[in-house]
Every structure is written in C-alpha cells, then in structure tokens.
C-alpha cells in the first residue's frame, strides 16, 4: 500500500508532487462545491477555483503572485458534465502539478485544455449519465416499487451511488494517470463503438418505459352487434398499448422534428388531453 503522504509519481528531479491525499482532496472538493455559486454567467467556474485552494496553499505558500494567477485562471468560465467530466480535473491536476514544480508547461495550458475538452465531455457525460445509466436504474427501481415497496428507491440509491461515485472517482484518477492521452482513448474508435452498444441498451429501456409508464385508454363505447362494448377492450386484443405508443411517438415527433421546447410540448399535451376528455374520447 502506498503511503498517503508519499507522492504518487516519483519524479526524476526528486521534487515532491501530489500525494494521494492531495488528489482525493481535489476530487472531493470538486464534487462538493462544483455548482455552489452557479449562475448563467459563470456556471461551474468558481467550483474549479475552490477545489484548488488547498493545492494553492501547499504549492504556492511563498509565491502569492503565482497563487493569485492559479486561482484566477481557474475562475474562468467552465461548464461540463460533473461526473464523467472529472477526467478533465484529473488531466488539469497533472498539468498544474507540473507547473507548480517548475516543469516546462505554459500556464495557459490548463485553461486551453479545459476549454477544449469541456464541450465534448459534457456531450459524452450527459448522454451516458442522464440519458442511459440514470433512466435504466430508475426504471428498475420503479418496477420494484410499483406496489409501493421501499425496495425500489433503496435499490436505486445503492446502485446509483456505487456507479456514480465509481465513475466520478475513476475518471478523475484515470485523467491524472494518463494526462492528455486519456482523451485519445475516450474518443477513440473502440470506445465509440462501445458507447453505441450501450446506447442500444438505453433505447430498449426507453421502449419499455413507453410501454410501462405511459397509460392512455379510451372510454369510447362501440356497438358489437346489438350490444355496446368498450373500444379499449378491442384495442387491447389487437395491439396492447397502441394508444400509449401513438402518444409517445407524437410527443417525440414534436420534440425531434418540430424542435419544440419541452414547455411547449407540455402545454400541447395538456390542451389535447383537456379537449379529448371534454369530447368524451379519453
């Protein structure tokens, strides 16, 4: 076991770099305060600066100007997905360690790395976390909770915390270890194929959500010979969930083809439900 007080990377020049404790602190402070003072103007900027305060105290103790420059460059605009995006924090930690110890790294380098990577990683992170992992775990949790059982929420809390923390910490350490090489692997062809495959899993789960969570049934009565019967019973016999599928596809069409905002779609759906209820269809 590596000692917490020993630097993780042994440098040829004998200078002492970041210890495991320093790194954990950088990661933890980012997690804790990344969005605290967010505004539309600065978003995650100051969260990054705040995570570097102990680092600044340790490595710039006798260099107030260097410290001010460090904290200022990490107060610039920054915005990415906070969990997958920790790979950027890791890469920047490696760069800042080098700068603090006098390596030949320009001080603009961390800023350009952050600016260049925050967009792509926000896209990657949002689609994996918000698009696939969270909805998949939630749909399992919802199915376990459908009779009101606490097993559902408890399953979600445990499984998500384990996965979420592992992703966040793993990406951070990976970024620190690999430096800029981490990005080549992340956006490389093989990992893109893997992403596509995980995406397929996400799409199937979304299909089950549409079938399980959208509930639409008509109250229309149609004549069966001399008697009246429910149209819904006939529909269920031919294609269960047909109305739910139609509603979902129309909603997707409004969002995707028409590019309407979620609020607009919400209003359209509400208006449509009111009209269809009033004419006695739903």
């Amino acid at each position: 076991m590596a000692n917490n007080e020993e630097p993780l990377v042994k440098r040829a020049d004998g200078k002492k770099g970041l210890t495991k404790h320093d790194l954990n602190q950088l990661w933890y402070r980012w997690n804790f305060g990344w969005f605290s003072s967010s505004s539309y103007e600065k978003l995650e900027s100051h969260g990054f600066a705040w995570s570097y305060i102990p680092f600044a105290e340790k490595f710039y103790k006798n260099d107030p100007e260097g410290k001010a420059r460090l904290l200022t460059r990490h107060s610039q605009f920054y915005n990415t997905e906070p969990q997958v995006g920790t790979v950027i924090n890791g890469i920047v930690a490696a760069l800042e360690e080098g700068i603090a110890l006098g390596d030949d790294i320009p001080e603009e380098m961390p800023t350009s790395v952050k600016t260049a990577l925050m967009g792509p990683l926000a896209g990657l992170g949002d689609s994996v976390i918000q698009g696939i992992i969270v909805p998949t775990l939630l749909s399992i949790g919802m199915s376990l909770a459908s009779n009101g059982s606490p097993a559902g929420p408890i399953f979600y809390i445990i499984s998500w915390l384990v996965i979420g923390v592992a992703v966040s910490y793993g990406m951070f350490r990976y970024g620190y270890k690999m430096g800029l090489g981490a990005i080549d692997t992340l956006v490389g062809e093989k990992s893109m194929r893997l992403m596509d495959a995980i995406n397929v899993l996400g799409i199937i789960v979304v299909g089950t959500l549409a079938a399980g969570k959208v509930a639409v049934s008509t109250v229309v009565q149609i004549p069966y010979g001399t008697e009246m019967g429910a149209l819904q019973d006939t529909l269920d016999g031919v294609f269960p969930g047909l109305l739910a599928l139609i509603v979902t596809m129309v909603t997707w069409w409004m969002l995707n083809k028409k590019q309407w905002s979620a609020t607009k779609v919400l209003l359209v759906l509400t208006a449509a439900v009111i009209v269809l209820c009033c004419i006695g269809f739903l």
């Binding site: 949002d126 689609s127 918000q130 698009g131 696939i132 909805p135 995406n199 397929v200 996400g202 799409i203 199937i204 789960v205 979304v206 299909g207 089950t208 959500l209 549409a210 079938a211 399980g212 969570k213 959208v214 294609f239 269960p240 969930g241 739910a244 599928l245 509603v247 979902t248 909603t251 997707w252 409004m254 969002l255 995707n256 979620a262 779609v265 919400l266 759906l269």
Partner: peptide, 29 residues
C-alpha cells in the same frame, strides 16, 4: 410521454434505431 420523448431525443441518433425502441416496447406490452 414527455419525459420519454425527451429521452428518445437523446438516445435515438438514427431513425433505424427505432427498431430497438419498438423491441423494448413489444417485450413489455
């Protein structure tokens, strides 16, 4: 349907992938 439509917007990148969406729907329905 609104939340699910928004999810479809993220995960379905090509119309052909609707096949997987229908597959999931049919498995449940």
């Amino acid at each position: 349907a609104l939340g699910i439509g928004m999810l479809m917007n993220i995960v379905i990148k090509d119309k052909i992938q609707l096949v997987f969406f229908f597959f999931g729907f049919v498995l449940l329905a």
